[in-house]
């Protein structure tokens, strides 16, 4: 038996959740006031994921940086690795919203795409 402690993000209550795990499986969630806490806790302890957003350099664009995001959720544990991989990325203007900036970032199978259009200067 293992216990994990989380703060629910469903609403400003911020319920302190306790998840009881056994052999990697969720046995019980306590401390939640509503269903959302239960759903959040189960996902967060078994498969925590995030969208990563950042910005990368644009050459010859109207502004020097373009904002980007992972098109889908990536494992939470890979946030730093993905940000690091984006540090030296440069793209050339024009950039269109939705353009793939880095395909299959860090082998996640998820593309990093532009979230803004940058016309050429």
């Amino acid at each position: 038996m293992e216990e994990k402690h989380l703060t629910c993000i469903g609403c400003p209550m911020g319920c302190q959740l306790t998840v009881t795990m056994e052999n990697g499986e969720v046995k019980e969630v306590t401390g939640n006031t509503c269903k959302r806490g239960d759903v959040y806790a189960r996902k967060e302890v078994t498969d925590p994921t995030r969208i990563v957003t950042s910005s990368v350099k644009v050459n010859g664009g109207k502004i020097p940086m373009v904002s980007v995001k992972t098109k889908n959720d990536i494992p939470k544990g890979m946030i730093f690795e993905i940000c690091k991989a984006l540090t030296d990325v440069e793209v050339n203007a024009p950039v269109n919203i939705g353009d793939v900036v880095v395909p299959n970032v860090c082998g996640t199978g998820v593309d990093v795409i532009a979230t803004k259009s940058i016309p050429a200067a």
């Binding site: 969208i51 957003t53 910005s55 904002s67 995001k69 979230t115």
Partner: peptide
Amino acid sequence: IHNGFGLHTFKEELTGPE
């Protein structure tokens, strides 16, 4: 540039620029 915008308006999570 972070995400979390538009859940009410578009029923999806967008970044600010989107």
